[in-house]
Design a protein around this nucleic acid. Structure first.
Lengths: 263, 263
DNA sequence: TAGGCTCTTTGGTCATACCTTTTGTGAGTA
DNA sequence: TACTCACAAAAGGTATGACCAAAGAGCCTA
């Protein structure tokens, strides 16, 4: 426990209004907003931090647990509790969206529509901003898709990565995070039906058209080809579901192991 | 503790792989996905549920805490733990996005760009699908805006609600949730500067144009007027920040009390 | 010097007790 | 009869203390 810790972690005021653990959450969140806790930082041990904040260990643990569920903190037994770094986990976890989908009966149509809106915008931006390196990465993933036309599971991987790289090329990390969140739910549903997939060739061709539009710096074409691609993908997935059974309401334990562990 | 509870809540297997509390989270999540837990349902008391699941109360509480942070469960002291209903809290909490913004230095520009992408899509869909009642609600909020041109705080409220109603008219709850998440962060930043706002008249006029485009069933016009509106709003907010100081990195405790309490 | 063993640190789990809020019930009263 | 108030039961929140298990650092040996 260093002196700087004694400076940074102020005791929770006794005249607190709400629940103690919420007060601790608020305090930690404030430290992040003020930049006193930065990605990769390690928090003091729970026993010490609890004393610093003037609360019991269970209360502190409750607060840490909340922030961990939001993907802000990550605890590793024996090692410590850390502020997550951007590369270590998806910025926004898809599990809450997946749960809301089950809970409130979001339809697969709504999901695809949302994805389409996000990815069309992303494709347009990527066409304006993609760097040479990003174009090269896109081309590589495309090659991977063509190379795995006969292995649906493998193809799906390259497919996912292609879309993630388009998102990266858009230069907007928020849109990227939102897309990943929505797409993760759909990919989870897809994983169960992909073995019945066919016409991967056509899908690969459409990805190439998207790539070309981005490479040619044509935002409008990028948006339109992305739209066509996703409409077709929706049709294909719905057909696969029709033939097999998996739908949004029977999602697997998708995001169960996402965003918990460090690098 | 009813018999049906003994049926539904199966004991966590001893041959579990990961952490016990994560296993409990997985189990509860599974029950939601399978529809065994529905919005508004009340969970058994912690002491009973812990026994049913074969774990200790702290472990169960950790799991509940995680799901509460995701906005899926909500506990009320003295009352019980409930599965949240859609109306009771935003579907997706903005606090995690807000934290990520601070943590990874998301720029206000990225934020506005994401909002623009979402709301343009939403406006287009609303123009296709808005019902008569929804149009009436939009008109009402517009009236409220014109009526509060001299009260910035009040105007901001109507502004927010106008956009939420456009979202509702889009018929896509996922896009609505995403928009609310992003917009909440921006509105939080705005709340601090809105007293310096001027030209609210021009803003109100733009909302009227958006309303007209939606009423006239013109998706393209709705998208474009929404785009112009948000670009102007961005310019205005950046000017306000310039003059005053508040930015994305000094967000207030915005979402602290969002999504915790029941109705 | 390299590899492995051990001890310490640190989060994870458990058991128990007690506090605070909520809620329902029932006695008492108008 | 109906309304009010108070009390008790229920249920989540907090605190303590102990022990388990994983990770890592350091030492010791080959």
């Amino acid at each position: 426990m260093t002196d700087s810790n004694r400076m940074k972690f102020k005791t929770v005021e006794p005249e607190r209004r709400g629940l103690t653990s919420e007060e601790v959450v608020t305090q930690l969140r404030g430290m992040i907003h003020r930049g006193e806790l930065r990605p990769g930082d390690r928090l003091p041990p729970e026993r010490d931090l609890a004393k610093l904040l003037g609360v019991s260990r269970p209360t502190l643990r409750a607060a840490i647990r909340s922030l961990a569920a939001m993907g802000v903190l990550a605890s590793r037994q024996g090692a410590g509790t850390f502020v997550v770094k951007a590369e270590e986990s998806p910025v926004l976890d898809s599990s809450s969206l997946s749960l809301m989908a089950s809970l409130h009966g979001f339809t697969s149509g709504e999901m695809f529509e949302a994805r389409r809106a996000l990815e069309m915008a992303i494709a347009g931006l990527a066409a304006e901003r993609a760097t040479g390196e990003q174009l090269a990465s896109l081309a590589e993933e495309m090659a991977g898709m063509y190379a795995s036309l006969e292995e649906p599971e493998n193809y799906l991987l390259h497919d996912m990565r292609f879309h993630q790289m388009v998102a990266a090329a858009s230069g907007n990390r928020i849109l990227t995070a939102l897309m990943n969140m929505v797409a993760a739910v759909l990919f989870d549903a897809r994983r169960k039906t992909v073995r019945r997939a066919h016409d991967l060739k056509e899908s690969a061709e459409m990805h190439r058209e998207i790539y070309r539009a981005i490479r040619d710096r044509n935002p409008e074409a990028a948006r339109e080809t992305m739209k066509d691609h996703l409409l077709l993908a929706q049709k294909a997935q719905e057909a696969e579901v029709e033939a097999g059974g998996a739908s949004l309401n029977s999602l697997p334990d998708s995001s169960k192991d996402a965003g918990e562990e460090a690098a």
